[in-house]
Write a protein that binds this DNA or RNA. Sequence first.
DNA 1: CACCAACCTGACCGCTCGGTCAGAACCTGA
DNA 2: TCAGGTTCTGACCGAGCGGTCAGGTTGGTG
Lengths: 179, 179
Amino acid sequence: MVRIRTRDEILRVAAELFTRYGFKGTSLHDIAAEVGCSKATLLYHFAHKDAILLALVEPARQSLIDLVARLAGIDDKGVRDAAIGGFIDLVLRYRREVALIYDVTPQFLQEPAFVRVRELTDALVAGFAGRSADPDDQTAAKVLLAGIAAVVIDDKRDEVELRPALVAVARRALIPGKD
Amino acid sequence: MVRIRTRDEILRVAAELFTRYGFKGTSLHDIAAEVGCSKATLLYHFAHKDAILLALVEPARQSLIDLVARLAGIDDKGVRDAAIGGFIDLVLRYRREVALIYDVTPQFLQEPAFVRVRELTDALVAGFAGRSADPDDQTAAKVLLAGIAAVVIDDKRDEVELRPALVAVARRALIPGKD
DNA sequence: CACCAACCTGACCGCTCGGTCAGAACCTGA
DNA sequence: TCAGGTTCTGACCGAGCGGTCAGGTTGGTG
């Protein structure tokens, strides 16, 4: 029986506390107390406090990378709808992780593992804008991108209800891609 | 020789540093060093660190109260456009303050001076949704509200360019008010 | 059994934080 | 000139932070 349970428990508790009190608002002591282990144990499993956050957020980051790669292979005509659907699916699947990333931005944006997040979201903005060069289209794309993320973070509606509502508002707000 | 009011200078510097490093990421020592005074001087002018933030944000909060009051006097047919225009004007006028509020939420949301902010934004959501009871309309309203605020916070475009773009995307995305 | 690596801990460290306090320096009007 | 309120400060405080370390505990394996 592998004793990896403690590590998972740390991640579970950390996600909960980071979500509730923010990253800076949660101390290693808080996490350790909730897990029921010592602070030193946390730092046995994770090199730094930051490493806990990175581990929590990594799956979402990987999904974002995948999404952007997928969008790169789609023509201008279809990219808007693919971006909308893909992004909404992603943030609904990783609601908690999205909240964590938003909480910790921009301080973590220059973390080596995170430098790419900015360019990833830039690619997403381009997708939302149907690769339009018009600044107003890009502004609209940013509004929707940030707005959807924000709603997903703190709205209590179920994702089954939320998804069509989010897709609908994005489709209404964003200019369709040209061919 | 004009005596620069230390209190004003503290607020100026604090706004700058809070914006750049966040509220928690800025210490009283940092502010004092930048102002060129002692930490004790800060606490002579402001009872607590929180009081500095509250003072910075107060004008924006008052404007929000005024806006919500104004919307209450408008009928369902016109409330959507009034809310859109009023909110966009407000966040463009108080870009920095909006950024501060978003940085510090939700920790400050239960501050006595801030308890009302949540209900104020709820009123705005209702306005954006043209007072519709449809949850999807309210979701759309939340997306636009949060999205506009987020864009205003970190977009570098001039407000003269930004305003029409923001109004346009909001009009497109939100259902017109019925009569 | 003994051994060893993985796992865990209490005690401790250096540092920064927000905040306090007694008193110095600085006006300003009498 | 002096008095007295306003403004400012260095020294200090207790608490909390992330992180280290030497050593104890545990459980599987030969």
